[in-house]
Structures are given as structure tokens and as C-alpha cells.
């Protein structure tokens, strides 16, 4: 091996271009992939949607990433009036920054020196996808969904976050109609940083509650 690939999902080796072969297009066609192709073609043929609409939706989803949420958090850290608006109505405050929140009812929950917030969807996989992109795989697992609500401190330790017993932990169970995002505590030593610099401190996990922001 000329070099190691940390990606466990590509065992087929490396293409002549030096990149791993893509599983999605090069693996044997599965039953469910056939169903996806069939459903998509039938929807288009029946005039229910166009290929352009489907491609545009994929592009919109691909463009969403935790950097969107990080920009919102950074503004809340830098701008006290925005922070108040965010905590009052996170959907409206995010739209104010130009983010497409759709019909989502988004609620921002604020970490303080005494309180840590964690989000989960015990029933399925509801997630603030319009601000953070698609959820990580672990968010959708039985293990996370089951345990986050009854032993959040143990779950957080698995993410490397060992909270003092004196910290109150609040767990928020999302639904299809009501989704949460954590407003993490602004790190000490970040005084005087610009909004863009602050945004670089905000990690995906810090907005789910399974992590903390980076230290400046």
C-alpha cells in the first residue's frame, strides 16, 4: 500500500486516478437501488416532478453543512440582540441570515456555565438538517436514540465529553415538527475575535451537544 486510507468503506483499492472507487456507482446493483431508479423514473414520467427539480434538491442539501449553523452561533456570540432573537425564534433568526429553514420549527437551546444541552430524536432521526446538513450516522443508531435520554452523561463520555456532576444536563427529544439546535457557550479567550473567526470554533457536535466548541 502506498498510503493508508482511513475510510473503512472502500476496500476495493484505489483507481488509476489515485482515488478510491465509488461504491455507489461501481458496486453490484442492489434491489433498493433498482427501486430508487424505478420510483424516480415513474415520478418523472407521470409528470409529478422533473429531473431538474430532483437535482436542485440534491444540490440544496449538499450545500447545507455545519458551517451554516456555525455562522448562526457565531453571530449569536458576537451580537447580543441577535442572540435574543435566536432564542425567541430560531427559525426566524436563521432566515434573517438568509438560510432556508423551510417550514421547520427550530428552537435554539442555550448552554450556560451551569447547564449543558443535548439533542436527540428517540423516535426516528429528526435533526436541524436545514442548518447542519444530513445527520451523522451515529445520530440515527439505536444506541444513541435509546441511551441519550436515560444516561446522557455516559453517552457524552463516549464522545470524549466528561461533564462535572455539578453541570445540569438537559436532553431535548426532537420531533418532525420541532427541532433543536444547541447554542454552545462561547469559549473563554475568544474576546475580540471576529464573527468569521468565532464561526471557525463551532463544531457540528457542539451544536448537537455531544461536543464543545474548539478553544481559540
Amino acid at each position: 500500500m502506498p498510503h493508508d486510507h482511513p475510510d473503512h468503506f472502500h476496500h476495493e483499492g484505489v483507481s488509476p486516478s489515485g482515488h478510491p472507487y465509488r461504491d455507489d456507482n461501481d458496486g453490484p446493483l442492489t434491489y433498493w437501488q433498482r427501486m430508487e431508479i424505478a420510483v424516480r423514473e415513474l415520478l418523472i414520467e407521470k409528470g409529478q416532478m422533473t429531473p431538474v427539480e430532483i437535482a436542485a434538491q440534491i444540490e440544496a442539501m449538499d450545500s447545507r453543512s455545519p458551517t451554516n449553523g456555525a455562522a448562526v452561533v457565531a453571530r449569536a456570540w458576537a451580537n447580543p440582540a441577535f442572540r435574543v432573537r435566536l432564542l425567541e425564534n430560531a427559525s426566524e433568526a436563521s432566515r434573517e441570515m438568509g438560510f432556508d429553514i423551510g417550514p421547520l420549527n427550530l428552537i435554539a437551546v442555550q448552554n450556560t456555565a451551569q447547564t449543558h444541552n443535548l439533542i436527540v430524536c428517540t423516535l426516528c432521526s429528526c435533526y436541524p438538517r436545514n442548518l447542519l446538513g444530513l445527520p451523522p450516522d451515529w445520530y440515527k443508531t439505536r444506541e444513541y436514540r435509546s441511551r441519550a435520554v436515560c444516561e446522557p452523561r455516559a453517552v457524552l463520555r463516549e464522545f470524549g465529553l466528561d461533564l462535572p456532576a455539578t453541570t445540569t444536563v438537559r436532553v431535548h427529544d426532537s420531533t418532525a415538527d420541532m427541532r433543536y439546535i444547541v447554542l454552545p457557550l462561547r469559549p473563554a479567550g475568544s474576546e475580540g475575535m471576529t464573527e468569521a473567526e468565532l464561526a471557525a470554533l463551532v463544531t457540528r457536535d457542539s451544536m448537537i451537544g455531544t461536543g464543545l466548541p474548539r478553544q481559540p
Partner: peptide, 18 residues
């Protein structure tokens, strides 16, 4: 909690978009 993740394949993104 299993921490492994994966990048979504095109067919998965299409299902989400549909």
C-alpha cells in the same frame, strides 16, 4: 454508540431528494 460514519452515495441522496 457506534461512531463509524459514511459519506452518502448518490442513490441515497436521490432517495432523500425524492
Amino acid at each position: 454508540v457506534p461512531m463509524e460514519g459514511h459519506d452518502f452515495a448518490l442513490w441515497e441522496k436521490r432517495v432523500d431528494a425524492l
